[in-house]
């Protein structure tokens, strides 16, 4: 340190000199310390063991000390982004399910193809011929023949109340009103519980029955079907339902009485049940 003797008084000069003598050692030590601190590498070298020790410590004790706090934050985040998570997951879950189903289908068809190879009945030859001729896979033809779908029962139901507008069935069934109510309850429950946009429940499987449902604004049609249903079959049924709606369901009904039920039951019978029976003869 240099002293500008022109600017300060003599007394001060003395004072500074005394300071210099007295503090000399301390000042030297300070400058060594400063150098040590400023030398980054050396500093790191000295500090690293402590940091490492602390990290080790955290590894062992972190769950105890921070678990509650972290899981609280995590819970909150999860709650806030439930919808996003569902949106994120559902497509891939859908894909997984689709994959699984098509796999099952493949193995089913494989089984049938094998059976075809081993059977030489006249019927098989006929099927083989048809399949060569039309270019359809034999297994598809056999599947179709075995299990053509049949509409067993049909219900026309008011959407909100679940009250029956009309119904028709191949066999005697006394509880149509109750079935219509329960179907509606199940439908409401499913649509409420798995609210995803404006999706409607459109099929229920029960034992060998499949119940297809097609929604319109104030009513829906439910068809109980036996046999196997391909996508094309579903399409066919859906078109059939649309043509029924187009033909008979123009006006809106508020009070359901027996006259109305009788009328619609007749229409349903002619459109879905008896036609179906006729086609099969």
């Amino acid at each position: 340190m240099t002293i500008d003797e022109n600017k300060i008084s003599e007394e001060e000069v003395h004072l500074l000199k005394i300071k210099e003598i007295l503090l000399k050692e301390d000042r030297e030590e300070l400058s060594i310390l400063r150098k040590k601190l400023e030398d980054e590498e050396a500093f790191n070298k000295r500090l690293t063991p402590y940091i490492e020790k602390h990290i080790e410590d955290l590894k062992v004790n972190f769950p105890d000390q921070y678990n509650e706090m972290v899981s609280k934050i995590f819970d909150e985040k999860l709650m806030n982004s439930r919808q996003e998570i569902i949106d994120l997951l559902s497509p891939s879950i859908g894909i997984m399910i689709k994959k699984y189903i098509s796999m099952q289908f493949e193995s089913l068809k494989e089984g049938i193809d094998n059976q075809v190879k081993n059977t030489f009945s006249a019927k098989t030859w006929k099927t083989k011929f048809t399949s060569k001729f039309y270019g359809v896979k034999e297994s598809d033809l056999i599947l179709k023949e075995m299990d053509k779908y049949q509409i067993q029962e049909v219900y026309l139901i008011q959407r909100n109340s679940g009250l029956l507008f009309g119904s028709a069935s191949k066999s005697v069934n006394l509880d149509q009103d109750v079935i219509a109510g329960m179907l509606t309850a199940i439908k409401s429950f499913a649509e409420d519980a798995f609210q995803q946009g404006a999706q409607d429940l459109d099929m229920i499987e029960y034992g060998t029955y499949k119940i297809l449902m097609q929604n319109f604004k104030t009513y829906y049609l439910a068809l109980a079907i036996t046999g196997s249903l391909s996508a094309a079959d579903k399409d066919e049924i859906s078109n059939n339902v649309l043509s029924f709606a187009d033909r008979y369901l123009g006006k809106s009904i508020s009070n359901i009485d027996e006259k109305i039920m009788e009328e619609y039951s007749k229409y349903l019978n002619e459109h879905f049940i008896n036609t179906n029976a006729r086609n099969q003869i």
Partner: peptide, 10 residues
């Protein structure tokens, strides 16, 4: 085929 048959107007 059976379907609902009524007497009154319930």
């Amino acid at each position: 085929t059976k379907y609902n048959i009524s007497q009154g107007n319930m």
